[in-house]
């Protein structure tokens, strides 16, 4: 069961490990990132970041989608972590109406600065391409929301986009 898909360029880190795993009672974290999947050092540090009672796997986006289609995945409570909005759209398309929460955490602040990036919230900066992807994501999942941790304020992506 996909409890949540979260866009977070830091993938697994304190906010995810300490707060979301608890709030959603997760049993597994699936990192869907082409970049991370090809980097053993990053894979190792991501695995270190996950709480010991939560299973973790790091795959390319395509391989992660395949993994999530495995019937055994439906018995787990999973969060899928993707680094970009585009990756989230890819996952959302593969699983229409099967994702309980579409969450935007941290994005665009670790990639190189560029003059066409727009600040959407304190945690999220997106290029025009990524903003288009976000619109697509909202079409697929209208409840897509910005929220750093469960205790933080939740804002509908739709209204963040309207305010641009």
């Amino acid at each position: 069961m996909i409890k949540a898909v979260r866009i977070d360029e830091r993938l697994i880190h304190g906010q995810v490990a300490m707060t979301w795993t608890k709030a959603l009672n997760l049993t597994g974290l699936v990192v869907a990132s082409d970049e991370a999947a090809g980097n053993d050092i990053q894979k190792m540090t991501l695995k270190m970041a996950a709480p010991s009672h939560v299973k973790t796997i790091i795959k390319t986006v395509d391989d992660a989608i395949q993994l999530l289609q495995d019937p055994r995945a439906s018995k787990m409570k999973l969060m899928v972590l993707v680094p970009t909005v585009k990756d989230a759209v890819k996952v959302a398309k593969a699983f229409p109406d099967q994702i309980e929460m579409m969450n935007v955490g941290n994005a665009g602040k670790m990639t190189p600065p560029s003059p066409d990036k727009k600040m959407l919230t304190k945690e999220v900066m997106l290029t025009p391409d990524e903003i288009e992807a976000l619109k697509k994501l909202v079409e697929l999942y209208p409840d897509t929301s910005f929220q750093g941790t469960p205790a933080m304020e939740k804002r509908l992506a739709k209204s963040v986009l309207n305010d641009l």
């Binding site: 597994g28 053993d40 050092i41 190792m44 795959k59």
Partner: peptide, 12 residues
């Protein structure tokens, strides 16, 4: 050096 195991059987 980095050591990773990425076994799907272990994940499920």
């Amino acid at each position: 050096e980095a050591h990773v195991t990425d076994d799907e059987e272990d994940f499920f």
